[in-house]
Design a binder for these strands. Structure first.
Lengths: 136, 136
DNA sequence: AAATTATTAAACCAACCGGTTGCATAACGG
DNA sequence: CCGTTATGCAACCGGTTGGTTTAATAATTT
């Protein structure tokens, strides 16, 4: 996928898709750490961990400040904002209410015809919940 | 990365890391679509698109209902909730306040004492924002 | 029955990922 | 200086990804 020079969101999601990299982010959230500190708890060689940090840098999730022989890394969380923004647009879809509603609709759909019930959603094609009802 | 049988969060982030798959999700948010409908706007062969849908199914982001020869897909957004939950834990780190604060701290930390010149570019070391002050 | 449509499956490919090892370099502490 | 520490870099490797093409299957239409 050539994560470099790919859209930032691609790089961010890709960066977050590996547990070692999420672990790094979590620990950086508590404050700066140098590469050795970051690498030591990861069951892998130092170069491997270093590569993970580079991936995070490529996604702008980590920034590095060289101080003597130590490379201090710190979390740069802005890209996570975009992640949240992207996912938030589907919040309505995962809220429990809709799951229940879906199940209900599926149950009453099959073959109904004489629809006296106004709330009967005739089509078997289900439309997405576009509006959020305030009611109960 | 063996996305199958990997932790769900890995699979979800991986699934979201490809623009074609995000595009599929976006369009499914508007309602069910079958594979052909999903594939047609994606500049790639049908089998390629079909594979993308399978990746999304592996991440539990899409579910398929076979109806005749058509495979109707619908969005299953719960996993996105976990994504949001994961990222939300870092919200404090990307909120603008901290950026400004960081800059400020950078300015006054180094060897301050009698710092009359506010634009002194002295600083280097920046510590992570660990505590959230309520004040202004 | 034949043609069309919707989809899977299989084989193949180049590129990439995630890991390793070995060696080079640079900074710090005696 | 020398040894140690912190890191980079290049080469290599097996497995996966993301794409293709071609062929097969199955449901629908004519």
């Amino acid at each position: 996928m050539v994560i470099d020079r790919a859209p930032l969101l691609d790089r961010v999601f890709h960066a977050l898709a590996h547990p070692a990299r999420r672990s790094i982010i979590r620990r950086l959230a508590a404050g700066e750490q140098n590469l050795s500190e970051l690498a030591s708890p990861l069951k892998m060689s130092f170069p491997a961990a270093s590569k993970h940090v580079r991936v995070l840098e490529g996604a702008r999730l980590v920034r590095r400040r060289i101080s003597g022989r130590q490379h201090m890394c710190r979390l740069e969380a802005e890209p996570l904002k975009e992640v949240t923004q992207w996912t938030e647009q589907f919040r309505g879809h995962w809220e429990a209410r809709f799951q229940a509603l879906d199940a209900l609709l599926e149950e009453m759909q099959p073959q109904d015809a004489a629809v006296t019930n106004p709330s009967a959603p005739t089509p078997r094609r289900r439309s997405a919940p576009r509006i959020r009802r305030k009611t109960s």
